[in-house]
Computed example of a mutant assay.
Amino acid sequence: MYIILQSIGKLLNIIEILILIRVFLNIFNISGENKFMRILYDLTEPIIYPARYLLNILGLNRGMLDFSPWIAILIIRLFYQLLVGVLL
């Protein structure tokens, strides 16, 4: 069971790193036409979209900054902690 949890943890860490790379590349206005950016968006958008939708429902997406990647990372970490708590 420990190996499965460790593997899931590594996968979630990779997803978090991809989300952070996306955030920093957006800060530098890297074009979405770039092949790397398209792949990055395809990998991270299914994770970020639910957080963006949640912020939209709560009416908290009104500013210049997009907090949905940070909410997605928070949800990923909470999910992993709940998983560890249930399985161990």
Rank of each mutant, 00 (worst) to 15 (best):
I21V: 15
S68C: 09
N13V: 05
Y41A: 09
A72S: 14
L78T: 13
L12G: 06
L55R: 01
S31W: 05
I8W: 03
A51C: 07
N26T: 09
L74N: 08
Y53E: 07
G9V: 00
I4S: 07
F28G: 02
L54K: 00
V84M: 10
L83Q: 01
L74A: 15
Y2T: 11
F24M: 14
N34H: 07
L55E: 09
A72E: 04
L83N: 01
R38A: 11
N29R: 13
I71K: 01
Y80Q: 13
N13C: 07
L58G: 04
I30N: 03
L43Q: 04
L58D: 03
I27E: 05
S68W: 09
F67C: 03
I76R: 04
M64Q: 12
Y53G: 00
I39D: 03
R38E: 13
L60Y: 08
E45I: 06
L20R: 02
L40F: 06
L12D: 08
G32L: 07
R38P: 00
R52A: 15
L18T: 03
I14M: 13
V86F: 15
L58S: 07
G9H: 06
I57R: 08
V23W: 07
S31T: 14
V23M: 13
R77E: 13
L60C: 05
G32F: 04
Q81C: 02
L88R: 10
F67H: 02
D66P: 03
I8D: 02
G32I: 01
L82D: 02
G59Q: 05
I4F: 15
N56G: 14
L43S: 13
I39V: 12
L20K: 00
L40S: 06
Y41W: 10
G59M: 05
I71P: 05
W70E: 07
F79A: 15
V86L: 14
G32Q: 12
N29F: 15
A51R: 02
I47A: 12
L65K: 07
V84D: 02
I76Q: 09
Q6M: 10
F79V: 13
N26S: 15
I73N: 04
F28K: 07
L54I: 14
E45Y: 13
G63A: 05
I76E: 08
M64L: 08
K35L: 12
L83G: 04
Q81M: 10
Q6L: 14
K10I: 14
S7K: 06
M64P: 01
I27A: 11
R62N: 13
L25R: 06
F28T: 11
P46N: 06
L60T: 04
I3A: 11
R62Q: 13
F28Y: 11
I15P: 01
A51P: 05
P69E: 10
Q6E: 10
M1I: 06
G63D: 11
F24I: 15
K10W: 11
I71V: 15
N61Y: 07
V23P: 02
G59P: 01
P69S: 08
N34E: 11
V84G: 00
R22V: 01
Q81N: 09
F79M: 14
E45A: 09
K35T: 12
I27F: 15
L83S: 00
I76S: 12
I15A: 15
G59A: 11
I14W: 14
